[in-house]
Design a binder for these strands. Structure first.
Length: 962
DNA sequence: GAATTCACG
DNA sequence: ACGTACGTGAATTCA
């Protein structure tokens, strides 16, 4: 296909249609305009820049150019007086935005392409053709405009950038032919010529829309041929084609993109170059694009990314004058901080200016490696009220990692590093004992980034950390729940500072990666001190921010106090009966082999059942199942999910077998095989990690392994829970569940009398709902009605839709609509609550929980109905799910505290969103059961007083405990 | 590394 | 006109 030999490295050229992208970006923000502090509407600029950046990062073009329409009239205006006449004058905001956009493009060192008398599409089309002729492997015309479809070839494609929730999309020849139902891409012009294009004021032929245009072109091939055969047409259509034939031809001409623009194709001129970082910085600063600046330039100051610029370590460090009293600073000294308060701080509280690294800083990082120095350090530590600290270890796995050093900081810019002998446990233990007075001091706030990790490490050295904690990771989690909270990103965003990458010390990730223990203490010192230093400074930035938005209490009363609770839970672990797992694995394997044989017999061939691709081909191509009702995934593969196979199972036994096979292999590989491998050898237990800063709603999540998704819904799955056992014969497992928390929260928040009454009376809520929705007395609700009502109740919490409900209970959309309507008649306040939730979110652009936890819903006013709908459902769900999370977190803190105060031996070992699991001492069960119930039920009181109920069970394993 | 599927609340 | 219930994590396949 390529006429010339392709270049050695595959060339990838992107040609952007500037105005089309700018208009689209502008209108995307039209409902809730983005305005910077100078009153400039920056929506179009931000949208365009985001699109540009995305394509640069994701697609990594080798060549690129941005085409603008010529300012003056184009040949199309000469040809057709009304051309684009109806398009309103360019909105003022766009006019103001364009100079900025051009500056940004220029700062990226990307050429701007304009040719007098031509529009961008002609320029792009011409260049695309010439690039193809020169042997470019791939050319992408980046535009949302469908006119470009006429230009698509095997190597020239359309790239529709991601937009308002839709993923980016590449349209190739096949897509175009399919979409327009034509045989050659050029016929797009004929289609457009007939149907016209309102936005470009191409008239087309009256009475011909998308459908008719397709049919006619399929039959006649072109506008000209249609006109030639106009006699074959009937009635009004014939009349129209006859009368407007001229207009049709003119429309076709207007829709035609011209490929003879007088412009040279210079490969070198379009080659990608490194951006002018300084210029981008200035522009983003002026436009107040902080997030973009961080994302794009954060770690990207030229010095920061260049591997050719290693950090000259130690060269400029002031030598520590051992034994001198002046080594330690009291708070009276004005140390120079990384984020010294300078100038206006903007909304992130960080000073403007280029990113800085350790080499730019006047810091004092000291090595504390003698008993005398340690003593002196401890003395200073004990005088502080707030100290950040960090642990350096031999690895990230808390169960096996050994301590390498400790760093401390109480004044910005000044920190201390204490090496710990990692290979001599007795000496290490003795050294840590020295610091116990500090760690245990109740009056000193300990500040850390992901401090649960440090607490756990210290716990392995018998150090119990007391006093208030402040975790900067959690602070940021409350400020921006759906962002990431790594220290490096936070330092860059809020302190404009780039910490030394850990890989500078221990090398890149790989087989020979070193650990901190392999690095001389003098080198670790700077890294470790910097972490403590940065963490302290982040605290000073976040605390006022949290106070301002009313989240400081949530942090101090819930998230921070939860940290030691989770550390204890993880430390305790859950005992797993590995031999039971082993037996069950063999049993499952037997079933699997058996089912496999049956599947191959049904299919008449062997194939990889685990490959959705092969499976789809076998089911839908070879066996021809599905009868036209075949679903496809977004990548064009056959969908073979549970939903599809269940439908198929009615008349194709193979579908049911595959579902069963899927279930069994899932159970085997994800649980039965995986869990025993994660059992800690030392104590026979698995130690999960509870992540406190992952979910958008405030829930915890569990990894390594995930113990929050252990099977229970099916017979064979549930069996796995039998392998979760108490630590010894003196213990039992005790499980305490909130009953219907989320529905109770919904009842309470909405104040719905009917639902509240049901809970007050202790009714089964699904039966009660069924009785209302189906208008039958409580005692006449059958299983089917209850099942449907249960689905409705869940649907309510999730922000119900008729379609979703119909899908899930297998009824028509009409029936689903009726059920929902009846529900909202019966539970009018619930409907009102849902509407109010959405309205409040539209105003605030966030939703809140009972304790003020926020979830930002920045798309709530989006013009894209799908995205908006999604965000509206979040506006309903987030406060409910998040409040439930608030409640159980409070309960965990209170129970942990109570167990400790009473010196009980029972240990909390798991949290599963609405359930707490305890490894309970048998003798304590009767004493703790009512207290745990009470502490859970009263952890937080709901505003309207809907009671919370807790069910407790015990047993020899987790299954029995339910 | 993305996509698909499926385990849980 | 369009897509379809909220929130997670892990295993697997495949490009």
């Amino acid at each position: 296909m390529t006429p010339d030999a392709p270049a050695s490295q595959p060339h990838k050229l992107f040609l952007l249609d500037a105005f089309a992208l700018i208009y689209r970006a502008h209108f995307a923000f039209s409902k809730n305009p983005r305005v910077n502090s100078k009153g400039l509407n920056t929506g179009a600029i931000l949208g365009f820049t985001n699109t540009l950046v995305e394509v640069l990062q994701k697609e990594k073009p080798t060549h690129i150019g941005v085409a603008f329409d010529a300012q003056k009239k184009t040949f199309r205006h000469e040809q057709f007086a009304d051309y684009k006449a109806q398009r309103q004058a360019m909105p003022e905001d766009i006019g103001l935005a364009i100079p900025y956009i051009k500056k940004i493009i220029t700062a990226f060192n990307i050429p701007i392409l304009v040719v007098d008398g031509y529009e961008a599409d002609d320029v792009i089309g011409t260049l695309a053709r010439r690039a193809e002729a020169q042997g470019f492997g791939e050319v992408f015309m980046m535009t949302p405009d469908k006119d470009y479809c006429q230009l698509v070839t095997d190597c020239v494609k359309i790239y529709r950038p991601a937009f308002m929730g839709n993923a980016a999309e590449v349209l190739d020849v096949q897509h175009v032919l399919q979409r327009f139902e034509i045989e050659r891409p050029e016929q797009v012009i004929d289609i457009l010529g007939l149907q016209g294009d309102a936005s470009d004021n191409i008239p087309g032929i009256p009475g011909i829309g998308e459908k008719t245009a397709k049919t006619l072109i399929q039959k006649y091939g072109s506008v000209e041929n249609l006109i030639a055969n106009v006699d074959e047409l009937k009635g009004k259509q014939q009349e129209n084609v006859r009368n407007f034939a001229e207009q049709g031809l003119m429309s076709k001409e207007l829709a035609t993109i011209h490929l003879d623009v007088p412009i040279e194709f210079h490969e070198e001129g379009l080659r990608m170059e490194a951006p002018n970082v300084e210029a981008l910085h200035q522009l983003f600063e002026e436009l107040e694009f902080r997030q973009l600046a961080t994302r794009l330039l954060g770690g990207g100051s030229p010095a920061g990314t260049s591997p050719a610029a290693p950090t000259p370590r130690g060269a400029r460090r002031p030598k520590v004058a051992e034994g001198q009293g002046s080594l330690f600073s009291s708070s009276a000294d004005a140390a120079v901080g990384i984020a010294a308060e300078e100038g206006e701080t903007g909304s992130f509280g960080a000073p403007a200016g280029p990113r800085r690294t350790l080499q730019d800083m006047d810091v004092r990082y000291h090595l504390i490696d003698t008993p005398e120095l340690r003593n002196s350090l401890l003395e200073f530590l004990l005088q502080q009220t707030e100290v950040s600290f960090d642990t350096e270890t031999t690895g990230l796995d808390t169960m096996t990692a050994r301590l390498v050093g400790l760093s401390f900081c109480w004044l910005p810019g000044e920190a201390y590093y204490v090496p710990v002998p990692h290979d001599d446990h007795a000496t290490a233990q003795a050294l840590l004992n020295e610091f116990c007075p500090f760690f245990e001091a109740p009056q000193i706030t300990k500040v850390g980034q992901n401090i649960k990790y440090d607490l756990t490490i210290l716990k392995h050295y018998n150090v119990q950390v007391s006093g208030p904690l402040f975790d900067t990771m959690l602070a940021h989690y409350l400020l921006e729940p759906d962002m990431r909270h790594g220290m490096d990103v936070l330092a860059e965003t809020y302190l404009h500072y780039t910490p030394v990458p850990i890989t500078d010390l221990i090398g890149p990730k790989g087989k020979n990666q070193k650990t901190m223990a392999d690095i001389p203490a003098a080198e670790v010192k700077d890294y470790a001190c910097e972490d403590a230093d940065v963490t302290l400074q982040l605290k000073h930035v976040f605390e006022p921010m949290l106070k301002e938005v009313g989240l400081l209490d949530l942090l101090n009363e819930v998230e921070n106090p939860l940290v030691p609770v989770l550390a204890d839970i993880e430390y305790e672990g859950v005992k797993i009966d590995s031999s039971a797992m082993g037996e069950y694995s063999a049993e499952l394997q037997g079933y699997i082999v058996d089912i496999e044989k049956q599947i191959f017999a049904e299919a008449g061939q062997e194939f990889n059942i685990g490959s959705p691709k092969q499976l789809g081909e076998v089911l839908f191509d070879k066996m021809d199942l599905g009868r036209g009702k075949i679903k496809k995934t977004k990548t064009g593969q056959y969908a073979t999910g549970e939903e599809v196979l269940s439908q198929l199972a009615a008349d194709a036994p193979i579908a049911g077998l595959i579902l069963e096979h899927r279930q069994l292999t899932k159970l085997r590989s994800t649980y039965v095989e995986a869990l025993p491998q994660l059992v800690c050898e030392a104590d026979g237990r698995v130690h999960t990690s509870f992540n406190q800063a992952v979910t958008a709603t405030g829930r915890l999540s569990s990894t390594n392994p995930n113990l929050q998704n252990i099977p229970i819904r099916t017979e064979k799955g549930r069996e796995i829970r039998k392998a979760f056992v108490p630590r010894d014969a003196g213990h039992v497992l005790l499980a305490a569940d909130y009953s219907q928390v989320e529905l109770r929260i919904m009842a309470d928040f909405s104040g719905d009398k009917t639902m509240i009454e049901a809970f007050r009376q202790g009714l089964d809520i699904h039966t009660s709902t069924a009785s209302k929705v189906f208008h039958v007395p409580l005692d006449q609700v059958d299983g089917e009605m209850r099942r449907k009502a249960k689905t409705v109740n869940f649907g309510i919490i999730y922000g119900i839709s008729a379609f979703g409900l119909a899908q899930r209970i297998g009824i028509s959309r009409k029936e689903a609509t009726e059920i929902i309507d009846t529900y909202f008649e019966e539970f009018a306040s619930v409907k009102q609550f849902m509407d109010e939730s959405i309205n409040r979110a539209r105003e605030l652009e966030y939703a809140t929980t009972l304790l003020g936890r926020r979830r930002y819903l920045r798309d709530i006013n989006s013009r894209n109905a799908t995205l908006r709908g999604y965000t509206e459902r979040n506006a309903i769900n987030a406060p409910i799910q998040g409040t439930a999370a608030d409640i159980i977190k409070k309960a965990m803190i209170n129970i942990h505290e109570w167990l400790r105060a009473e010196r009980l031996k029972t240990r909390m070992i798991l949290q599963v969103h609405d359930e707490l699991v305890f490894d309970a001492v048998k003798e304590e069960v009767d004493y703790i059961t009512p207290k745990i119930k009470e502490l859970m039920a009263t952890a937080l009181l709901l505003p309207h007083g809907v009671p919370l109920e807790v069910e407790v069970g015990t047993g020899q394993n987790w299954l029995q405990a339910h």
